[in-house]
Design a protein around this nucleic acid. Sequence first.
DNA 1: ACCAAATTGTAGACAAGGCTACATTACAAG
DNA 2: CTTGTAATGTAGCCTTGTCTACAATTTGGT
Lengths: 159, 159
Amino acid sequence: MSRNTKDKRTAAELPPELTQARRFGKTRTAQSRALLEDYVELISDLLATGGEARPTDVARRLGVSHATAIKTITRLKREGLATGLPYRGVFLTETGHALAERMRTRHRLVVNLLVALGVPTEIAEADAEGIEHHVSDATLKAFSQFLQISASTRASRKS
Amino acid sequence: MSRNTKDKRTAAELPPELTQARRFGKTRTAQSRALLEDYVELISDLLATGGEARPTDVARRLGVSHATAIKTITRLKREGLATGLPYRGVFLTETGHALAERMRTRHRLVVNLLVALGVPTEIAEADAEGIEHHVSDATLKAFSQFLQISASTRASRKS
DNA sequence: ACCAAATTGTAGACAAGGCTACATTACAAG
DNA sequence: CTTGTAATGTAGCCTTGTCTACAATTTGGT
């Protein structure tokens, strides 16, 4: 059965399993980005609150060894998201900052949605950590609209 | 600053950054499970529809090479989720079946929620692929309750 | 029963992300 | 200005997950 490796249908009707394959592929690359996103978001946080981001702090907050943190930070630099001289702390590039900002927004939105749906804040915060990297822009927009609507509904009920 | 690696406070007030570390750790292990979950779910699907699950089909549906699929299936067997003799197709153990069932439920619920929130089905399906692995039971329950409520609301509006 | 083709399996390479152990640098206290 | 300690960086190892290339098995058609 299904010896149809080479069957060629027109592009319109073709993708029964290809769609699925593409989806999985996307999810896989998303996971590879997820870690970098977490690092960038955290570094941005440390920079904003403490004025500096030290590898050790990053490591402790992420729950990994400092060696791991440094290695990943090196990758961040290689990919143009971070900068910084040896022994001198980490900083974000323009791109890095933009990404951090995007992730922060995402995170907030996901948490807010979960909470609006009745998830306890603690759990919402934890789940969002995993979910936020897999939410498309379209879905994010839907979240935001839902939150607006439910907010105004609550407001009108109160008045 | 923060030279407090070994400081021991009471469990109640302690975890400012530890909480975050734990969350990241959880997310990391979740990602490691995610792939296995995808494989199990897919194998269960193939078994249900076609009666057999061949590594090649799994590979094609997942968009990876057959070698990768076989290696991962080996790991599935090692972890007690799948069985099967060489050259004889793959099957699921009790545990594997249970996991597949759980994932199927999860997936459906996540998709339904997204759709209910106004996300186009196509996109909901794709996003769910990434999200479903990071949704805790509590959050899942909240999803399900929301769906029930919004369903009954629609019903009463209609009557 | 045989053979060609497809499927399945194996080997070896690579990158990512983790770790521990060791080396180097910075810095503050004396 | 020395020096001890914390932070930073480096080296080497492990596991996952991916690939390509090659070997082995099964199977359907003759």
